[in-house]
Amino acid sequence: MAPDRVPDASALRGVVVAAHPGPALAVTVLVGLLVLAQGLAAGRGILVVAAVLAGQLSIGWSNDLVDRARDRTAGRTDKPLATGAASVTAVRVACLGAVAACIPLSVALGPRAGLLHLVCTASGWAYNLGLKATVWSWVPYAVTFGGLTAVVTLADGEAPPWWWPVAAALLGVGAHLLNVLPDLDDDAATGVRGLPHRLSRGRIAPVAAAVLVAASGVALVGAAPPIPVAVGVGVVVLALGAVVVRSRGRTPFVAAVAVALVDALLLVVAR
C-alpha cells in the first residue's frame, strides 16, 4: 500500500504514533512538574504546558516526515510513514497545526519566555533537519532540555536557579545517547553519524549513565533536600544507572526518563 493512502480507520493511530507520543508526553510531564515546583498560577501553568506539548508534537511529526525515506530504506516497521500506516498529507497537516498552535501559545507566555520556547522548539527541528548526523547531535537536546526550565521560570518573571538548566541539559544529553542506542545499525546504514555513533556501542550506555548521575548530582546540590531525601534519590538514581548499563532495547531510554522524573519530583518536594 502506498504511504499516502491509508484506510480511514487506521489513519488517526498512525498520525499519533508518528508524533513520537512517548517522548513528547515525557517532556511535557517533566515541564508540568517544573511548573508545580515554580508555583505558577494554574492558568499560566496550563499555558506553559500547552505550548511545550505543541512544540514537542511538531518536533516528533517533523522527525518522521524528514526521515521517511531513510526509515523505508532501513525497513523500520515502527514508523507509520515508512510502512504506509499513516498518510504523509495527514502528518504534514498535523505538524503544521502543531506549529500554528505553538507560535501563539509561546507568544502568550511573554517576550522572553515565548522567544526562548520558540528557540527550544527550533532546536529540536534543527536536530531533525541535519544536526542528528553530526558530532553536534547532542547540542539540540542540551539546548531544548536546559532551555525549557528557563521557559517555566521566565513565564513567572524570574530567571531560573543556575542548576535547573545545567541539570536539565545533562539529562537531555543522556537521553539523546540512549534514544539512539537501539537504532545504531539502521542509522549507520543510512549515513547518520551523530555523537553516539562515534562512540563505540559498548561505551554509549556507561557514558550516558555517568551523565545522568551527574545531572542528579547537580540537582541534589542545588535543591539541598533533607539528608534522608538526598540519600533516597541517590539510591534510586544509581539503581536506574545500573539499569541503563545492563539492559537492552528501549529500556535504557525509559530508565533515563525515570531519572529525569525523579529529579523533577525532587524539585517539587524540595520547594
Rank of each mutant, 00 (worst) to 15 (best):
G114K: 00
A74E: 10
A41M: 07
V29W: 03
A108F: 04
S58M: 12
P80A: 11
L40F: 11
P80E: 11
G43D: 11
A26Q: 04
L36W: 10
G39E: 06
V91I: 13
A155W: 07
R72H: 11
D71T: 08
P104I: 02
D64M: 10
L148A: 09
V107H: 01
A41E: 15
C120V: 08
A94N: 09
T83F: 15
K132I: 03
A133N: 07
Y127G: 02
A74Q: 12
L109S: 05
V48F: 11
H20P: 12
R92S: 12
A82W: 09
V31G: 05
A69E: 15
W61Q: 09
V16N: 13
G75Q: 14
H20Y: 15
A90N: 10
A101W: 00
G130D: 01
I103S: 00
T28D: 02
T83V: 12
R70W: 05
T134Y: 08
G114P: 00
G45A: 06
G124N: 11
L30G: 12
V48T: 08
G146A: 10
A42S: 10
S106V: 00
Q56N: 12
R76C: 07
G97C: 01
L30V: 13
S87Q: 13
T153R: 06
L115M: 05
N128S: 11
L148Y: 06
V99K: 00
V151G: 09
W61F: 10
F145I: 01
L129V: 08
V48Q: 02
L109I: 05
Y141S: 04
G75C: 13
A41D: 15
A122W: 01
D78P: 07
G114L: 01
T83N: 14
P140E: 01
V151T: 11
V29L: 13
G55A: 08
A85M: 13
I59R: 04
L154A: 13
D64R: 10
T144P: 00
S62R: 11
A126I: 06
V135K: 13
G130L: 03
G130M: 06
V29K: 00
G32A: 06
T28V: 05
L47F: 03
